[in-house]
Design a protein around this nucleic acid. Structure first.
Lengths: 336, 336
DNA sequence: AGAACAATTTCAACCGTTTGCATAACGAAA
DNA sequence: TTTCGTTATGCAAACGGTTGAAATTGTTCT
């Protein structure tokens, strides 16, 4: 690699000391206008760019935030990254992305990577496999601010940004009931995640509100396309099949629609389906999917803003953890 | 932020010099076994982690690669990021992501950001707006290896990784013809991008091969959902409407299907449609979309591998630019 | 002329780590 | 005892930039 132009190069060519050059470049009042302009002109001519690494070493900060995320390919997460990057960009921060691929082991490695890379703060949505959170607590012990988003558990001593899962689930199930459903199944997320618990609670309470008996046999833990489709096929073959489905994400919801079509059931006439996410696919499938908009972009923005706030704060001891809840919205389409 | 444990802390506690500690930690033969173990034990006890920034400053490398990409939310690009991150992870590199949001101005800013962050190399897919490439050439002048992927233009003196757009387009149109289409329209990408030119060429040659007259009035420059839908609606209303469509991406293809449905045309009976990308949505829409698999993940992998190869190489002068072409594959589904 | 002061500029230390070279300690050979 | 070789450790410079304090220069006043 070509040697970079340094402040020293400029200093030598101009017969000045590095300190003078440094000050001239940042408009320090002590420097005479003559030297200031001379330095700046030469710097521009040579294409001088300050060496961030050197600055980082001195300031012990990198203006970089680490992002640990399960899967970039998932629409919801890419929307979040989008929001994060937006805020980071506007505040002159860079984002380092680490995928856990839903693997606990890899996620632990990722936490090491962010430590090695000396990021200023970390945004985390942990993997489905993760049950132990000590690797994240190690970050907190190192006083690196951490903000968790979307996936969250109880008892985590750190900032959190989540969608209002309870409200979203309630909206979804309420909507199904208003459309006439009597027997509503729920495809749920793992129950150790708050997102799983809260959506189930919303489902539960919406049924209760309408005096519908809550049958836990209608709750199935599944959140992938393939699994959901298989399950839906078997459920829809039963004589007392549900007439409504509330799925934990759009993929599962679309899988249900596909399964219904295979069994020659009409959506929404025979079976109504609501998803959760409002992904691109939701408006592309047939019939278009009614779903809960999780506002991934906003969630990412908020998470990043909260992290930046932490990075600026210098109160000792630090403010106690905060939880931000993003309201969701029902997007009614053709599947209900 | 809590002060990090440094080599100096260890040195003082053990009454040694920093050099001895440094050497002990990396098993330098000069160090006596006794001190070596003492140092290592204390380091482990204190949770010492080498300060990457300091190492970076010394080695003038960051083991970080910059990624400049139009839109993370687009499935194809997130698949590519996935592939890139995979290779980077395995080789102990980190990835910094910068979105251009299809904006030239922001893209120029992004190139500054990667320079400031002193990444070791850069992966680029430029924005649709970009017609001038001097900002990238500035990177090349700074001898920062750059690999372009997917979007590429002629005369770029840098490595490139692209899908075989010509072959993919040929496969797609050939398939439509074999399924009986006589009048095939093409929704194309901007013609200043090779991806636009090559797909058009593939379309062209497949028609020629079957002795079908090439009518340039059937080629429309559009690659977004909304625009494509509007266009498809007006085209399909015409008396001599096409009986086949080859779209430059899945979004546009699905828009055509939607438009056909709105006009009570059946897919594939009345109109056949082929996309390009093989996104998630392609297998979720109704009918499932026949498309060309672009192997985004592999494309990302290859691009990253090529960059890493450049980073390792030290031949002077450097090897001349290479172009890698990834074969595509037809995925026949229900829309044809 | 000498003092006092302001305006510029330089010196040197520092951030954390590595590394070529010098040096200390010690036993063995002369 | 001196000298030579080992072996183990320390010194100091370097990476590129910042910054408090010291030094230089020039100007003005007495």
């Amino acid at each position: 690699m070509k040697r970079q132009i340094t402040i020293k190069d400029i200093a030598i060519k101009l017969g000045l000391s590095t300190s003078t050059v440094s000050r001239a470049l940042k408009d320090h009042p002590d420097i005479s206008p003559k030297t200031r302009t001379a330095v700046k002109e030469l710097a521009a001519l040579l294409g001088y760019r300050p060496n961030m690494i050197a600055l980082n070493l001195r300031s012990n900060s990198t203006r970089t935030i680490g992002l640990i995320i399960p899967e970039i390919e998932h629409y919801f997460f890419s929307a979040i990254i989008n929001g994060i990057e937006e805020v980071a960009y506007k505040n002159d921060y860079s984002v380092m992305v680490f995928q856990s691929n839903e693997s606990y082991k890899r996620e632990v490695n990722n936490t090491h990577a962010v430590l090695t890379n000396r990021v200023d703060g970390v945004l985390v949505s942990f993997s489905k496999e993760t049950l132990d959170f000590s690797h994240f607590m190690k970050l907190v012990e190192n006083e690196i601010p951490v903000v968790f988003f979307d996936r969250v558990v109880d008892g985590l001593l750190a900032d959190q940004v989540v969608a209002d899962d309870y409200q979203g689930a309630f909206l979804a199930v309420n909507h199904l009931i208003e459309k006439g459903c009597k027997r509503i199944a729920h495809f749920s997320a793992p129950q150790h995640l708050l997102i799983g618990k809260n959506r189930l609670a919303g489902y539960h309470d919406a049924l209760l509100k309408h005096n519908i008996h809550v049958d836990l046999n209608l709750v199935f833990p599944t959140d992938t396309f393939d699994e959901s489709k298989k399950l839906a096929l078997s459920i829809l073959k039963q004589p007392n099949r549900p007439d409504g489905f509330f799925a934990v994400n759009d993929m599962s919801a679309i899988a249900i629609i596909k399964a219904a079509h295979e069994l020659n059931l009409r959506v929404p006439e025979d079976v109504k389906v609501v998803g959760f996410e409002n992904s691109k696919s939701a408006s592309l499938c047939e019939p278009e999917l009614t779903t809960i908009d999780q506002f991934g972009f906003e969630l990412g923005r908020e998470a990043c803003l909260m992290l930046l706030r932490r990075l600026k704060e210098n109160s000792q001891p630090p403010l106690k953890p905060e939880r931000k809840v993003i309201k969701t919205r029902l997007v009614a389409r053709k599947s209900t």
